[in-house]
């Protein structure tokens, strides 16, 4: 049996992501059949709009439904207490989030308490200490594998400078078909929103994890820095 066939079987046994392993964009009646609902969670960073736009675009054709999002007010992280209750009422749904580091540190702990399954997290920096490029560090489980290379492809096509590092958790995943291409004109937040939406909708086509760096022509367009993205099942 070939390694890739074995891996597909493994996935079948584990009961997740099998659809994503077949070639091409899945049409994913599967997501609709599963009744997947995607809940965006954002916290008033400067790139919320692109991220949300990305989620909407990413979900097109997946069959998953976009639910009403959660918007956290800026300010004291202590005000997050209500969020835990909110999240616990969303059992079975998938959350795609973009938050600042301070609040994400707390939300991470909530997700663990709630027994959520985290598919992918990404850290994104665009502060001046990163020069004119954006830096991204992803941790991916097999169902989100390759997100770094897809972001790299999209940013490179828009001539942006970036450095991307993806740490792969779990089993190796064979490439699932033609590499995903996403619209690079939306900046990193829009691209990541699209990618995470597809991950959350079980519509991601896994690719290789790796490190990518590109010196582009376009200077950083956003002053935002220190943001975290994630996709999780509650």
């Amino acid at each position: 049996m070939s390694a890739s066939r074995r891996a597909v079987l493994k996935w079948a046994v584990a009961g997740s992501g099998l659809v994503a392993l077949s070639g091409g964009w899945p049409t994913l009646a599967a997501a609709a059949a599963k009744g997947l609902e995607i809940v965006p969670l954002v916290g008033r960073s400067g790139v919320d709009a692109s991220f949300l736009d990305g989620i909407r675009t990413g979900l097109v054709g997946t069959g998953a439904a976009l639910s009403q999002g959660i918007l956290l007010q800026p300010g004291d992280p202590s005000a997050l207490e209500d969020l835990e209750q909110r999240l616990s009422s969303l059992r079975g749904r998938r959350v795609v989030g973009l938050l600042d580091e301070g609040r994400q540190a707390i939300v991470d702990e909530m997700l663990r308490d709630l027994g959520a399954k985290v598919m992918c997290t990404g850290r994104h920096s665009a502060g001046p200490h990163t020069g004119s490029s954006t830096n991204h560090r992803f941790a991916t489980t097999p169902c989100a594998r390759g997100i770094g290379s897809v972001l790299a492809g999209a940013l490179a096509s828009a001539s942006e400078s970036f450095a991307i590092h993806e740490t792969a958790f779990g089993a190796d995943v064979p490439p699932g078909g033609a590499p995903v291409r996403l619209d690079g004109s939306r900046g990193w937040a829009g691209i990541t929103g699209q990618a995470l939406a597809r991950v959350a909708a079980d519509a991601w086509i896994p690719g290789p994890a790796g490190h990518y760096r590109h010196l582009g022509l376009v200077a950083r367009t956003t002053a935002d820095h220190g943001l975290v993205t994630f996709a999780a099942q509650l």
Partner: peptide, 28 residues
């Protein structure tokens, strides 16, 4: 707010304000 926060902290009342620190540099 800063005084009130420290007042809570010194009387053992839960608050998570110091997590704002992680937004300083960014990158976690």
């Amino acid at each position: 707010p800063v005084f009130q926060y420290r007042k809570s902290m010194f009387s053992g009342t839960p608050t998570l304000r110091e997590f704002g620190m992680y937004n300083w540099r960014g990158g976690g």
